[in-house]
Design a binder for these strands. Structure first.
Lengths: 217, 217
DNA sequence: CATCGATTGTCACCCGATTGTGACCAGCAG
DNA sequence: CTGCTGGTCACAATCGGGTGACAATCGATG
């Protein structure tokens, strides 16, 4: 879990960062708002622990900017005074949670955890063709309920054929899309890879040859 | 709904337990703090109804221990005197609600119900995959009923793999999400960590390698 | 503050799978 | 029969991942 701590007081900053690291989180630390903004463009954080009173760019400003950018990072705002009014302000700025100083460290940890528990992105759908399925995210190919394991090239070729959805795909197109520039078009690489792929997929055959036109599934 | 009643006065204890059972709850009953602590390690309760004045281990102590353990059980504290001061103390100790004696039984029921509802939402942040379970909050990993202890990095990697839900996770992604900025992408750190993780998890192997694609669980 | 063990990053080396390659074979159309 | 397209095979080079050793660092403990 990736966390950015933004806090200008050295002592407190390192204490927070150290504590969160101790909980097993990957923590980056910056001491002002400007740095916070650049860091959040470079890295993807799950949570930003943001002190409100920062020199230079104010915490509120950082928070607002993140919200404007539609940053996926959740913001936990730290503030000296914890009044209802502050809380409302903070949440209106786009903070996801609010914690007043002084705070109990275990509470900070709990809240960071809670914020990081974001709904995991749904897995993209798998391809299916007859009894063949290919799941791009999991990198799994099955024939019926039998798992088929493929080498990276074989997998990529099969994925491309499935994506073509029945259209015939020429050897040139495969070379273009599946291989990189280093591929030598004057050799039999594609033929060979298709052969190996067919062998691994077993019977009945799935990949048809279209004379002069390439391959189709 | 699973409830533990901790109350040293026999009469009152059985009355409460009986009443809650009558409301359809599964109630366990103990008469002192020490028993309460052992029971809560054995079973997962939704709510603990806890008398404050207990012989031996005091109610406050029980409450604090539960909080320290990050127990998911919510605590409803019962107390003879219901002063503001008591209430604040109780809540600071980690109790989730507070009820002064004498109380109206219907109010007790209502509060237990309310607490149970509250508990059910953020309760299950534990991953499971086959015989493997990982509890992020407690930082506990088990294989079947055998506890596995992992270093922080190993734990974080495993958590990430489990969160990916079978998706293949590349070494780059792991570096990005589990390590902080100081990580050097040109070395074999991830490989090594995976190797150590595999060794600790034992047989049968759980983490699969996806050539060119990273790791999958 | 010194010490000891655990943790972690780094490197050198090993190994098997993968892949590109070209020679050769098979089927088919003209 | 001939020429062409595509399939098959064996081989060698390469690559990606696994392993074990080592050192630096961290953290707990006396």
């Amino acid at each position: 879990m990736r966390v950015l701590v933004v806090e200008d007081h050295q002592r407190l900053a390192t204490a927070i960062a150290g504590g969160l690291r101790h909980e097993g989180m990957a923590v980056d630390l910056v001491f002002d708002g400007a740095d916070a903004l650049t860091r959040t463009t470079i890295n993807d954080y799950d949570v930003v622990v943001l002190d409100r009173d920062l020199p230079g760019v104010h915490g509120d400003q950082v928070c607002r900017t993140l919200a404007d950018r539609r940053s996926p990072a959740r913001v936990l705002m730290l503030t000296a005074a914890d009044t209802i009014r502050d809380r409302v302000n903070g949440l209106e700025l786009g903070a996801d949670d609010y914690l007043g100083k002084p705070f109990d460290f275990s509470e900070l940890v709990a809240r960071v955890r809670a914020l990081a528990r974001r709904a995991s992105a749904p897995l993209p759908p798998a391809y299916a063709r007859g009894d063949l399925t290919l799941d791009p995210a999991r990198r799994i190919v099955s024939r019926g309920d039998r798992r088929v394991d493929l080498s990276p090239k074989e997998f990529a070729v099969l994925e491309h054929l499935l994506a073509a959805d029945g259209r015939a795909v020429s050897a040139e197109e495969l070379l273009e899309r599946v291989w990189d520039e280093a591929a030598n078009p004057f050799t039999t690489t594609v033929k060979t890879t298709i052969a190996r792929l067919r062998a691994r997929l077993g019977d009945p055959p799935l990949i048809e040859t279209v004379r002069e036109g390439g391959y189709r599934i």
